[in-house]
Design a binder for these strands. Structure first.
Lengths: 115, 115
DNA sequence: TATTGTACTTACTTTTAGGTTAGAATTATT
DNA sequence: AATAATTCTAACCTAAAAGTAAGTACAATA
């Protein structure tokens, strides 16, 4: 194989799957994006949407998502505080991934407690 | 809200996204499925396809994938050993997910070292 | 003045994932 | 007799991810 030839089927650091996974591969990441979806959700609502997540993890993930421009955040100067989260355009672009994930789950992981 | 009403937008343990993530959410899982794809690959080839993975992780993941019926394994009684891996029907069903992941990476994570 | 609601923050501990290194098995080759 | 080739195993260790629990801020409300 020549040096100049493309490394077909080789997943180096520039592999798009790897890059996506680095951004979206967290335990809660895609689930949170899925829950926000096309809605506008307050922090508390979101928390109720994802039973089992700890406040720490939720905030941590949300900060990460805002930092990486997948989610935008709007705080209202009120007491008690009010904060809204929604997907950015980039965040919306992840929805096809989550949709496939959901479809796979529905079609292939019915009932059976696999793990 | 009535008790009998569906918990719309609520991600409990039966949420298909959560179930899929439980099965496919490992660091290397989707990448390995992506690499195998529609090919038939020997262990060594696969290893070369995924620079950076350790032998331990690769074997561990492959065992996991075989155990969960996403990948099938065929050993030839030869010395030195020869083992082939390929996707099962279930494994092939995950490819749309990886495709979306790849597309997202290509379309949104160009060049910029985000992480 | 005590309590409630909301969105966090901090410190600490535990769990899990992942990495490293070495080695086993077996036959052909040098 | 040593080496290579290939697929895997086992022991150990570290670092990152995640969980737990408590606390903060501030005004409204009771």
């Amino acid at each position: 194989m020549e040096k100049s030839q493309k490394n077909i089927g080789q997943s180096d650091e520039n592999c798009p799957v790897r890059k996506s996974l680095k951004l979206l591969g967290g335990k809660w990441t895609l689930l949170i994006l899925f829950q926000i979806n096309e809605r506008v959700l307050r922090y508390g609502e979101l928390k109720r949407c994802i039973p089992g997540i700890s406040e720490k993890m939720l905030i941590q993930e949300l900060n990460f998502l805002v930092e990486h421009k997948l989610v935008s955040k709007k705080s209202y100067p009120e007491i008690p505080p009010k904060v809204e989260y929604r997907l950015t355009t980039l965040g919306l672009n992840t929805l096809p991934i989550v949709d496939r994930l959901a479809a796979f789950g529905l079609e292939n992981l019915n009932e059976q407690p696999i793990l």
